[in-house]
Computed example of a mutant assay.
Amino acid sequence: MKNTRNNDLSDRRTAAAEAKFALLNAYRAARTADEPARLARQAERVSIAAAREERRLERERIKRDEAERQAAEAAERQAAADAAARAETEAREAAETNRIARVLEDEAARKAERDRRYANRKARRA
């Protein structure tokens, strides 16, 4: 069946305005009805963001602690290496000093033996 009603421009404009108004009212009603759910979703998003931030801070703290631990271990290794190098140097110097002292003692003993032999030879001649 054809629409036999004669729609004038003013009728169409009125119908369009009423339709827009009805859509606007439906939107407002849906928005006010959905307000608690929207607030709940927003609160959930805020809590998720806070938890995410907390996890990020925890990861940063763990990374910082790990970096500090590695730096401390590196410092300990460096200190141990320095102490070992110092001990090796001191041992080498002590060995060199001992060798020089032994050489001097041997030289003094050879001199003393030579002087004793010389004194004995002089004593036999006299």
Rank of each mutant, 00 (worst) to 15 (best):
A79F: 01
L24Y: 13
E76D: 05
L24S: 12
A29W: 05
K20P: 03
A19W: 09
N98V: 07
L39T: 03
A16S: 14
E35W: 05
P36I: 02
D11M: 15
T89M: 09
K20F: 13
A51C: 02
E68Y: 02
R13C: 13
R41D: 07
R13Q: 10
K20L: 14
A19H: 10
T32R: 12
A37L: 10
A17V: 11
E93S: 02
A81T: 03
I48Y: 05
A22R: 08
A81H: 06
A80V: 04
A83F: 01
L39P: 00
A74V: 04
I100G: 01
T32S: 09
R64L: 09
I62V: 10
T32L: 14
T14Q: 12
T32H: 07
E88Q: 06
E73H: 04
L39F: 06
Y27D: 06
E76M: 09
E66D: 08
A49I: 02
V103F: 10
K63C: 06
R56N: 09
A26S: 06
A71L: 03
E88A: 11
E90T: 04
R56D: 12
E53T: 08
Q78W: 01
A84T: 03
D65W: 02
A101D: 07
T14Y: 09
D65C: 07
R92F: 05
P36G: 01
E93H: 06
N25F: 06
E90M: 07
K20H: 13
R86P: 00
E90F: 01
A29T: 14
R41S: 08
R64F: 05
Q70R: 14
N25T: 14
Q70I: 06
E54Y: 01
Q42A: 13
Q78R: 13
Q42K: 12
T97F: 03
S47W: 02
R59S: 05
D65S: 07
T97N: 08
R31S: 15
A74M: 04
Q70S: 03
